[in-house]
Design a protein around this nucleic acid. Sequence first.
DNA 1: TCGCGATATTATCGATCGATAATAGCGTAG
DNA 2: CTACGCTATTATCGATCGATAATATCGCGA
Lengths: 220, 220
Amino acid sequence: MARNPPPNGTVRTRRSRTDIRRALLESALIEFGAKGFDGASTRAIAQRAHAHQPQINYHFESKAALWTAAVDHLFGLLAEAMHGLVLRQPTDADVAQLGQTFADGIRRFVSFAAEHPELNQIMVHEGTTASDRLTWMTRTYVQPFFNGIGSAWQRLLEAGIAAPIDSDTLYYVLVGAASLPYVNASEVRLLTGRDPSAPAWIAAHADGLVAILLPGLETG
Amino acid sequence: MARNPPPNGTVRTRRSRTDIRRALLESALIEFGAKGFDGASTRAIAQRAHAHQPQINYHFESKAALWTAAVDHLFGLLAEAMHGLVLRQPTDADVAQLGQTFADGIRRFVSFAAEHPELNQIMVHEGTTASDRLTWMTRTYVQPFFNGIGSAWQRLLEAGIAAPIDSDTLYYVLVGAASLPYVNASEVRLLTGRDPSAPAWIAAHADGLVAILLPGLETG
DNA sequence: TCGCGATATTATCGATCGATAATAGCGTAG
DNA sequence: CTACGCTATTATCGATCGATAATATCGCGA
């Protein structure tokens, strides 16, 4: 709510270019996630960032450019959250290790979906209808994830670790099952009275997904 | 595209009240599903139904009333698709039968999600933010499904048939995993080159969900 | 401290939104 | 065949949309 004063003690009445851009990006993610590209208004985005509507066109080129920048930012955060996860093992020797890595990836993805529900909200908004935004987002960001998960899944299938689901279907089963409680957090609270962002929910959710998707995983 | 002439052979230039209302409802489902309540425009809804925009306010009270009527219609179709499924068995004697019934329910739900992706699209659009629409839809239609699935799941858990997931989480894992390929059908086509509405996809998808959610089910 | 470039703020444009009044025309009852 | 009720169509309202021009103000360099 209140801005932190800069560390040197001078009272700053204008935010730096970096700060205002970041504030607009994060506000845009929330609004685009909640209402989709068409439904979100630049005035609401600006207001949430404590800025004025024309500042969006000043700091970004247009509403569309803001959307693109926001999605760039968001997939950057996802890449950060997945950093160090190597699904393509250099050798086929230890497939069990790939299984552990995949399980780790599931847990990280569930945590990310809980912390940043905007990602899957936006993907659901865009994924329903063909558009330039969907094509760009799919080719730029989703395809690599899809391919990486698919090839790892294929090897886990052959090793008998993975549940009997083909890799195309697995991707949507995984993403859908991992993200829906956080995408629809408002509904979860109405329906269950529980908070899906609670650590206990997230941990149980991730454990459940690992259990059903990787039944052949060695525990311990 | 072209309307069928009525069976008596007279050329009808006006559709009956029933026909135009139904056309508007089905058009509304597609538009609300694709863009959400705010993003969908009454002009686009009317045009898709080969009608004029003011006819929406004539045949329904308002955009909000149209949305409500469309959701009523859609949950009616879901209830039809689930007709005869009794998850609450009168006796605990044969829990295996409950498992088979649950599996049947999963298959029917996957088929319905494929045939009517608008349902889950609308639920995802509304489920992100608290609103009167969400409260009404949840209390009126979702809660009974949620409760029925939850109590059945509890008994399947105790019988060792169900995967180790608590019933609150199970609901979202099931719905998310069952619906995402059809909610995001456009993305599926871009990403996989396959058509998720194809019977082969639907069958494999449903079989996969049954396998991972009910590992203790007797096959055959 | 002064001046200028960068950013903020206000005002406003044309387009589109949902809604409604006014008019036109179809179709059946009598 | 006429007349009237129901539905379709057109026109238009105030509100809001994204975008931009015009103006005001901040804050750093000289």
